[in-house]
Structure formats: C-alpha cells, structure tokens
C-alpha cells in the first residue's frame, strides 16, 4: 500500500455510479452464472436428459404408430419442454439466496431488476436454448413431419425465453421457502398456458400448412410482455423472500 496506515483517510465517495458501470455489473453476473454452471455440468444436463427421457416415454405409453404420434407430437414436445424448464427453475436463485450473494446484489448501486434479467438470461442460455437445439432429434423420435422442425425450434427459442422470465417470478417467490419447489410448479404452470398454446399451435399450423407467422408473432408479443413485467415482479419477489 502506498500510503502508511496513519496518513490514510477513509473518504465518502460523492460521484454516483454511471451507466457504463451497469454494463460491467450485468456482464459479470451473466458470466458468473455461466461459469458456475460450466463447473456443474450435471445441473445443465439433467433437464435436457429429462426432456429426452420424458419424450421417449410417450410412444411406450401410447403407441409406436407413427401416424398417431405425429398428431400428438407438437403438444407432447411442448408440454415436456414446459416440465423440463420447470425442473431447472428451482435452482435459479436458490444458491444465491443460501450463500448471501443475493443480499450483495440488492446492495449494489444497480437496480435489482436488471441483475435479475442477467440471471434469467443465463438460465435461458443453459436450459431453453439447448432444449430448442435438441428438439429436432426428439421431433424425429415422435415422427414429427420434417417441414415443421424449423418452426418447432423457432417456437421453442422464443417461447422458452418467456418461460424463463415468467418462471423467474415463481422461483423468486418461493426461494425462501423450505419446500418451495412443489409450490413453484403450482404457481408457474397456469401462467405457462398461453406460451404452451401459441407454441404448440405454431408447430401444428406448420404441419397443416397454415400460416405460422401469427403464432410466432404472438409468442414474440408474449416475450415482449414478459420482458416488460417480469423483471419488476422478480425484483419485488426477491425483496419479499429476503425479508423472510
């Protein structure tokens, strides 16, 4: 240290944090979550394996008949994606809540809303996006017509982002509760229904040769609404949870 202990004075900083600093905080929070998950690949892989496993159960439970499966495929792929996304939600804020990092996030000069968005973005990059990428393979397992595979991926990319944002509200509300994960599914699944309807609707429309764009546009509108409202709801819920 350049100054000796006796001459060093502690000063109150007077300049406020500027906008550029927010970028640093958001980037670091995003990278931090990605880094953490990179070291625990199991947490990333489990929902994906669940997705694949659950989808492959349906032919055994219903019938291996390709024509029958193809009719149900859009719904099955979407419902299972919903459940897989739900499975990964509980961990979204849990470790930060337990180890006290969440308190530090609340006390930094930046709004909790934007930090929450960074965390949700990391969650989506590690669950929603990989699910959308692996969906074509699962579509083939369920005899989904080839012409709808692209729409399936597009709908999952758009829809899963909404799922992460809406699910973040439920995760934030239940993070302080001892057995929050069961309650989490009760809170979040009803809110997922519009995403499910427009998502599987897009795939069905693609199969039937109908216009796909209206469905995708509606999914986009849902995502926009979720982007506007959920960060506030997540931040408010985190404040409630931290309060005990």
């Amino acid at each position: 240290m350049p100054l000796s202990e006796t001459t060093r004075r502690v000063a109150v900083i007077s300049e406020p944090a500027d906008k550029q600093h927010l970028g640093i905080a958001l980037g670091a929070t995003l990278m931090r979550d990605l880094n953490r998950m990179r070291r625990r690949p199991g947490d990333v892989l489990n929902p994906l394996v669940f997705y694949a496993l659950a989808v492959s159960l349906f032919p055994m439970g219903i019938s291996p008949e390709a024509s029958l499966l193809a009719v149900m495929a859009p719904g099955l792929l979407w419902v299972t994606a919903l459940l897989a996304a739900l499975l990964s939600l509980d961990g979204l804020f849990r470790s930060d809540f337990d180890d006290g990092s969440l308190e530090q996030m609340m006390l930094c000069p930046h709004p909790l809303t934007s930090l929450a968005v960074a965390k949700v973005a990391a969650h989506w990059l590690l669950t929603g996006l990989p699910m959308a990428l692996m969906a074509p393979v699962l579509g083939i397992l369920l005899a989904l017509p080839m012409n709808s595979i692209g729409v399936l991926m597009a709908s999952l990319v758009l829809g899963s982002a909404s799922l992460s944002l809406i699910g973040g509200i439920g995760a934030a509300l239940t993070v302080g509760l001892p057995r929050g994960s069961v309650l989490l599914s009760l809170l979040v699944l009803p809110l997922y229904i519009p995403v499910l309807i427009f998502g599987s609707g897009a795939v069905q429309a693609a199969i039937m040769g109908d216009a796909v764009l209206p469905h995708l546009a509606l999914l986009g509108a849902l995502l926009a609404a979720a982007l506007i409202f959920s960060p506030w709801a997540i931040a408010a819920s985190l404040r409630i949870s931290i309060n005990g």
Partner: peptide
C-alpha cells in the same frame, strides 16, 4: 411476507 407474496402473485 406471505401477504406481500400473495399480493405480487395476484397482480401477476
């Protein structure tokens, strides 16, 4: 806390 959480959920 329960009251606040329920309020947020009702608004959502």
């Amino acid at each position: 806390s329960g009251a606040r959480a329920a309020s947020v959920l009702a608004m959502v």
